[in-house]
């Protein structure tokens, strides 16, 4: 659930656009490098983007009696990092803003930042840290995808709180109110998303572990161990 069109007053919508633009530019640059030098990873890039498409189209009911949708950015964050993910998120947000009146052009900078940059960067950092300490790969991917989803909505709440501080209690009190609306709803959805991304990751390991090694997502040793465990 993105920030609705027109719901960020000046100067916030310009501010978030400005913050997001350098990330998008670097993401495009990295994407070009993949197209040029790592052509074998291109299908995986398409799958990661398609994953964001599918998951962010599913509005799911949650414990709070309202609906929200997962972000689907966890897979791309683990595979390609936060910068490339910001470009994929931009594509999906454009589709939803233009065809569905979901989110918006003026609020897109803020939405790209929460869904395409902040969430994925946290996910990427968590995954790398987990890899360092030899955490089980699937648990690691689950945590990363869970975090990408949940943190997106924490940031959304923060962005709205900054733009709409409560008359009493200011930013902190309105942050609490937006967290109650967005983040709480999101917890069960983030769990489901984490599980689905972990499962998808298993299938990628099944069919093309070599690409994961080349992208430095897994080491050859980790692949060998996972293959042995799967028999």
């Amino acid at each position: 659930m993105h920030i609705m069109e027109g719901f960020l007053p000046s100067p916030w919508w310009q501010f978030w656009w400005l913050v997001s633009l350098p990330f998008l530019a670097f993401g495009l640059h990295q994407m070009k490098a993949i197209v040029r030098e790592r052509r074998e990873a291109l299908p995986l890039l398409a799958v990661a983007g398609a994953f964001v498409f599918v998951l962010s189209s599913l509005k799911l009911p949650s414990v709070t009696g309202s609906c929200s949708h997962p972000t689907g950015t966890g897979l791309s964050a683990v595979l390609f990092g936060g910068f490339v993910t910001s470009v994929l998120a931009l594509i999906v947000l454009l589709y939803q803003a233009l065809l569905l009146a979901h989110g918006g052009i003026t609020t897109m900078g803020a939405n790209v930042f929460s869904m395409g940059i902040a969430g994925p960067l946290v996910a990427w950092a968590l995954y790398r840290a987990g890899k360092q300490v030899n955490l089980n790969t699937f648990i690691n991917v689950f945590i990363a995808a869970f975090a990408a989803d949940l943190f997106t909505y924490v940031v959304t709440s923060f962005q709205l709180a900054l733009a709409f501080p409560a008359a009493e209690g200011g930013i902190i009190s309105s942050f609490a109110a937006f967290i109650a609306i967005f983040a709480l709803t999101q917890v069960p959805l983030a769990v489901v998303e984490g599980v689905i991304v972990a499962l998808t990751f298993k299938y990628i390991i099944d069919v093309r572990p070599d690409i994961l090694v080349k992208l430095d997502v897994l080491t050859q040793n980790m692949v060998n161990r996972l293959k042995e465990a799967a028999v």
Partner: peptide, 12 residues
């Protein structure tokens, strides 16, 4: 089961 964004919209 309305959308969470509709709730936020209402709140704002």
């Amino acid at each position: 089961w309305a959308g969470a964004d509709a709730q936020a919209e209402e709140f704002i």
